[in-house]
Design a protein around this nucleic acid. Sequence first.
DNA 1: CATGAATGAGGGTTCATTCAT
DNA 2: AATGAATGAACCCTCATTCAT
Lengths: 188, 188, 188, 188
Amino acid sequence: MTSSNKVDLIMKASLTLFTERGFDATTIPMIAAQADVGTGTIYRYFDSKETLVNVLYQESVQRFTEKFKTDFSKISVREGFQHLFYCLVDFTKESEYALFFLETNKDAYFLNETSHKLLDELTKMLGEYFQRGKSEGVLRNLPSNVLMAIVLGAYLKLYQLVRTGSVEITKPFLKELELCCWDAIRNH
Amino acid sequence: MTSSNKVDLIMKASLTLFTERGFDATTIPMIAAQADVGTGTIYRYFDSKETLVNVLYQESVQRFTEKFKTDFSKISVREGFQHLFYCLVDFTKESEYALFFLETNKDAYFLNETSHKLLDELTKMLGEYFQRGKSEGVLRNLPSNVLMAIVLGAYLKLYQLVRTGSVEITKPFLKELELCCWDAIRNH
Amino acid sequence: MTSSNKVDLIMKASLTLFTERGFDATTIPMIAAQADVGTGTIYRYFDSKETLVNVLYQESVQRFTEKFKTDFSKISVREGFQHLFYCLVDFTKESEYALFFLETNKDAYFLNETSHKLLDELTKMLGEYFQRGKSEGVLRNLPSNVLMAIVLGAYLKLYQLVRTGSVEITKPFLKELELCCWDAIRNH
Amino acid sequence: MTSSNKVDLIMKASLTLFTERGFDATTIPMIAAQADVGTGTIYRYFDSKETLVNVLYQESVQRFTEKFKTDFSKISVREGFQHLFYCLVDFTKESEYALFFLETNKDAYFLNETSHKLLDELTKMLGEYFQRGKSEGVLRNLPSNVLMAIVLGAYLKLYQLVRTGSVEITKPFLKELELCCWDAIRNH
DNA sequence: CATGAATGAGGGTTCATTCAT
DNA sequence: AATGAATGAACCCTCATTCAT
């Protein structure tokens, strides 16, 4: 009933396909078939395939950024990490394909300026958290982007296993995973 | 010796381009230009673009597998991990693009059965190592593929930073990274 | 009266756009926007884009034919030519784009039989006039369609200059032009 | 045997189709079929459909300009006109479709800067001729572009009749036509 | 052996036309 | 009656693949 019904179908289909096959291997006819709309319909809502992928990317980054925002001054570095980790978990729970922006290399040729800007914003927020952790001596003294890469890279690869059904998510499992990642970056 | 020269040129060019731009965004003329051969020449040595990418993938996996093979009975779990980690380091040192097979999702549509089989072989070897670690109580009690995902995911994402020049590799840096990864999966 | 209002809007918009951009470069949405109606509305009044262009063409030819009709027996060949010339002038004065049917090559692929028939009717009338002029020895002894082509071709090309603003129309200017054309075809 | 064999086929086919049906109504598959080449082949030699039409246009204008160039100081205005007229005749004799640039409105959206420049060059040459004619009092005192429009418009419309086979060209016929056009613009 | 000109299937995209509202 | 969202055929163009040289 909502006018954006078709838009949602298209975005959901695109997100899945882009994540599974990549931008270039995903064709507009594929998306149209998956979304059960005509190919022309996609162009009623998105100027081009590139626009579509950027909208998707930006929407993902923004939702994650929103979710991640919190008053870090009120929580410890340890709690901050738990917050980050369960943001990732919640985010991927909403959609198996939501971490699309993590799979996409940030210098992918199809990303536009807005996409870069939004990612930079998120990166900055994450960077500030990691910086504080290092200042307090709680986190390893490695560049923030390295700490991020370790956590996000590990989680991403892990979630690919979830998608293929090789691994099932349970509460205790998540708890242990969180510990893994935390142990990877904290000072011992 | 003479003709295999061209094969090498083609494979090196392909590896770089596939890793940098992805399989679909890389065209045969691009590879030919980069390798400084005619487009037709590529087809003299490889049946198709898909064949080429699979040969490349398999060659990568095999070289890595070969490098990884060692008599684990003679070393501790801790030493085994160091072996694994420095295999990754050595491998990427040979070519920035060598980890192509790690960047390629294992259910990528263009991988054929042989590629899957060779990857499975490597996975099995890695699995055995992780299994032993768990049996000895040294590693966390998580599925082996999860432990692998954490280590490889982290290293892979990290190496993407190296390729973009955001991070520089030094000996002490590698040592700390190795510890990160080890701390992520070992029992505390 | 009410619904024909929309028809008029659509036809006026079409005439302008078809003349300015050509049949193929003019889209139905363009016409709809220019006429300030919905795209669907155009199809309420015209079966198809081809129907529309033919109705337009026929209407133009018919209006011109009506204007051109006169009792030639009462006027001289010279006066007849002035009549023809000022028919062209009046016609273009009504709308800069009215000569659409002259700009359209008569073997344009989109013209249907009715359009051809109506043009033939006009051609016949013009032909009779030119024939008489030749019989009386006033006009050059060239095929009538040739005499027509000279006059119409010259006037048409001239009017394109008017549309681009390169030339301004004044009474004395028109008088001289008329003489040009007359001198082109009369016997000297 | 010449390497430009295919280029010639494509250009000839394009010229015909663009002239007969217009730029927009002519599709690349049509041109390919007419030229008896694959669609891809066209893109080996021409960047785009727009490039193709511009090359064609420029080639036409240049060949005509070359033909038209002469030492006007050595001939009278009357002789100059004969030169112009028989340039048109020769030009169209080489190919029925050679006057493509006359059929194309000079503000057609697909013409690029080079095309405009070349046409301006020709226009300037023609303008100088007409100017001289007016200075000497031989030609009517009308703007040069008007005099041009009359002659070129008349000839163009005339040649469309030739293409449809409605009119046959003979030497005496041409001689009379030349007189028609001359009488249209000369001072009486 | 090596090449690159030639090809056509299939990609992204547009737009004439339909139809539910 | 009027609309414009939805559609898919057909556009322009690319590129994996072939083959004559």
